[in-house]
Design a protein around this nucleic acid. Structure first.
Lengths: 169, 169
DNA sequence: TATTGTTATACTCTATAACTATA
DNA sequence: TATAGTTATAGAGTATAACAATA
């Protein structure tokens, strides 16, 4: 039925021209699934906006963070931690190595594996991103509400544990 | 430092060979952002697994659902509802039309726009997917917990409203 | 001129399979 | 034979820009 009529007196160019018309979301509008998706999406975009100066997505930050927190971990361990296939990680690490942020070194005890460590430049980049990440997380926390945070996190963890089939590999 | 030693007595082929080693997630492990992402991801995959027989992703279901609930809505309205660019919707609708699930018709009052409606076959497909979607949502609800559901949804909505910049368009 | 939707195109993210080198 | 990581490749999903038809 797509209302489309009384839109004459637009004086201002209207920054949001395409606000959703009065769509009936019905059952879908009450689902956790849809809202989980939308919330994740806006959070992802908000992070990217905030960390725009540095060249970063949430995953790129996570990779730097995890290498920093676990120097010498292998690519396989890192891939498992962020639940991605190692082949998805290769180009990311290539890029980080090219940028001089990460070094790959063969693991002594298993020369098939690489260990990962941050260079000083990588640590500096991490520190800068960390500031963005903390601010981002603080903004989310404000929306979640201090009193609800712990329970909210627990619920998310239950979903991750309960639905996760450890696919991807 | 990537533990890698006592793995000798593997008798069983070990279905999950690459369980994350004891990685230190530190600050990251306590963030809402990471868990929101992971929860959304497993939920998305769980839906896809469940609706595998029918050919469906959550978005494909949402499109059918919203056309069903709002017969005659335009592509622009639908795109706004799911927060996607109309050009992203075109191939999806092409596909649904080819499958005989959706019909596009020119809107009388504005012949640039298409209105969308489900065919009987489309309604049948929707009904089948609906069963999967309801089961999926029920499983999520079980994990969320009945007592927490309303508040959990409200928090997600606050995040969506608070961080969403209505980008995408 | 502005808007609806399509097309061409490009970019990101992801995985699978085949491969190399180790084990 | 099995594993760690790379490469080649493919697919999904998304957006931007130029365009045609219409307003």
């Amino acid at each position: 039925m797509a209302r489309r009529s009384a839109e004459k007196l637009k004086i201002v160019p209207q920054p949001e021209p395409a606000l959703p018309r009065d769509i009936d979301f019905g059952w879908l509008g009450g689902t956790v699934g849809l809202h989980l998706r939308l919330a994740q999406e806006v959070a992802f975009q908000a992070f990217a906006r905030r960390a725009d100066g540095a060249d970063a997505s949430p995953w790129r930050f996570a990779v730097l963070f995890l290498i920093d927190a676990n120097p010498g971990l292998t690519q396989g361990d890192l891939a498992a931690a962020i639940r991605r296939n190692t082949s998805s990680l290769t180009p990311v690490l290539d890029d980080l190595c090219r940028s001089g942020y990460v070094v790959r070194e063969r693991l002594e005890s298993d020369r098939r594996a690489y260990t990962l460590t941050l260079t000083p430049a990588g640590q500096a980049a991490m520190a800068e991103l960390m500031a963005s990440a903390v601010a981002h997380e603080r903004e989310i926390d404000r929306l979640v509400g201090r009193a609800n945070r712990a329970e909210f996190m627990q619920i998310l963890k239950r979903i991750i544990g309960g639905l996760g089939k450890d696919d991807h590999r």
